[in-house]
């Protein structure tokens, strides 16, 4: 039984760490602020939750798990709120998402039926 818990918690920790890294790399490489919001969301929600679940499995039924549940609930509710607040502040302060201009869409899109 102990073995299974260790394996499961290791798997959760590995998945959580992987997601945190993916989100962070996303935050670096994505071109525009509003796309980086998505990357930051990945790390804050799923990455954090998986790591915390991995720790919960390690701690078993104890006060530590209660604290971990509190932390994960709090992060689960506040990190999307914070990300929304940043996006809302950016949008009201006039930061426009870098949309693909119409010409680019025209240039790249393949017309059905037209033999361009």
């Amino acid at each position: 039984m102990e073995m299974i818990l260790d394996i499961a918690s290791g798997a959760f920790l590995a998945a959580g760490s992987f997601l945190v890294l993916v989100g962070t790399i996303g935050m670096l490489r994505l071109p525009d602020f509003f796309t980086r919001l998505h990357a930051a969301g990945i790390t804050d929600t799923l990455g954090a939750e998986l790591l915390l679940i991995g720790m919960m499995l390690q701690a078993g039924f104890s006060l530590v798990t209660v604290k971990l549940i509190l932390i994960s609930l709090f992060i689960f509710f506040t990190s999307p709120t914070a990300t929304h607040a940043v996006a809302n502040a950016a949008r009201t302060m006039g930061l426009k998402p870098a949309l693909v201009s119409d010409e680019d869409i025209e240039a790249t899109s393949v017309r059905r039926g037209s033999a361009k």
Binding site: G23, M27, A40, D44, S79, A82
Partner: peptide, 8 residues
């Protein structure tokens, strides 16, 4: 955004 993510 980066500082918020850093905090988490």
């Amino acid at each position: 955004l980066a500082v918020n993510s850093f905090g988490t």
